[in-house]
């Protein structure tokens, strides 16, 4: 058991001690590179297929390099660039607001659950856990959202339902429970209230898990199209993924609707181009933010 003072004066081990080169490290890098490539290759394939002509794909299958290079799929999707840009805006807003409020509410709920001395700890944990398994199905959810909450065509309908997710709360709880209790006790003896302890000690010490859960929130909000399918009639409130989903099903219906006039849309390359448009910006942001993200984890890791 270490005390606060000791912790704070301890040299930052990882940053200062440079490990000499060794073979173990090389093997580790080798394994991770292989796994990394296995994850990267399909992404390259997606980009390649999105730029290939339909005919070449049908004749030769997939290649890592685009065959019969064409931008048709992108041109088709971006016919109305305003629409896509708007959808990016909606998604960005939903993701930002949803992630921040979700993180706050979930950690506020997780912290009491992590406290051994909180008398409602067990029943409340159960209360949270129960929602992980049981749900009332779509019909009552739809009735609640539209008739009682009036959230049809309201951007809150894309945010609120995912704000508290049992899975995240329970992971946060587990992580909070492992914080050194002496630190909290020391703060309490100094006269700090629960709120101050939470905001000034618990949250800063929990950066790694907050960053992780934050990332999950981002992915969840970014990738969701289902809530929009249920509640969004107004095209100007479509989030990106739903817009792409709608474009894709429309193309599919057109492709099998014999009445279609005009040029047939190449379905495969269009689907891949949509995937690129959906994850491209997300990955780009991820790469940009990663420096901060990684540092956040490291600082948190050293302090804790």
């Amino acid at each position: 058991m270490t005390t606060t003072a000791e912790l704070q004066t301890r040299p930052t081990v990882r940053a200062t001690v440079r490990r000499p080169f060794n073979w173990g490290q090389l093997v580790v890098h080798l394994i991770l590179s292989l796994v990394g490539i296995a994850c990267l290759l399909p992404m390259l394939l997606i980009v390649s297929i999105s730029l290939s002509s339909e005919r070449e794909i049908a004749l030769n299958g997939y290649r890592l390099w685009p065959q019969g290079f064409t931008l048709f799929a992108y041109e088709y999707i971006l016919q109305q660039p305003g629409q896509i840009l708007r959808a990016y805006g909606v998604t960005a807003f939903v993701t930002a607001v949803g992630t921040l409020s979700g993180l706050l509410v979930c950690s506020l709920l997780a912290y009491p659950l992590s406290r051994q001395d909180y008398i409602f700890r067990r029943p409340l944990s159960f209360y949270v856990f129960f929602t992980l398994l049981f749900n009332g199905g779509m019909v009552p959810f739809y009735i609640l959202m539209t008739r009682y909450l009036g959230l049809k065509d309201n951007i809150l309908a894309l945010i609120l339902p995912y704000m508290v997710t049992a899975w995240y709360v329970l992971i946060l709880r587990t992580s909070f429970a492992q914080l050194p209790i002496d630190l909290l006790d020391a703060a309490r003896i100094d006269g700090a209230g629960e709120w101050r302890i939470f905001f000034q000690i618990v949250l800063p010490l929990s950066k790694p898990v907050l960053a992780t859960i934050g990332l999950f929130f981002v992915l969840r909000y970014w990738n969701d199209w289902f809530l929009a399918l249920l509640f969004m009639n107004r095209a100007d409130l479509y989030p990106l993924q739903y817009l792409l989903y709608v474009l894709m099903t429309n193309i599919n219906v057109l492709a099998s609707n014999p009445q279609t006039v005009g040029i047939p849309i190449p379905v495969q390359s269009t689907r891949m181009a949509m995937a690129v448009l959906a994850f491209g910006p997300a990955l780009f942001t991820f790469l940009l933010l990663q420096k901060h993200f990684v540092r956040g984890i490291t600082i948190g890791g050293l302090k804790g």
Partner: peptide, 25 residues
């Protein structure tokens, strides 16, 4: 602590527990 948990408790009540009446379906 209960006050802290309250927003989450209410959110779960509304978005998870209220629709559970649908289990009767």
């Amino acid at each position: 602590l209960t006050l802290m948990a309250l927003p989450g408790i209410i959110a779960l009540l509304v978005f998870a527990y209220l629709p559970m009446v649908g289990l009767v379906i």
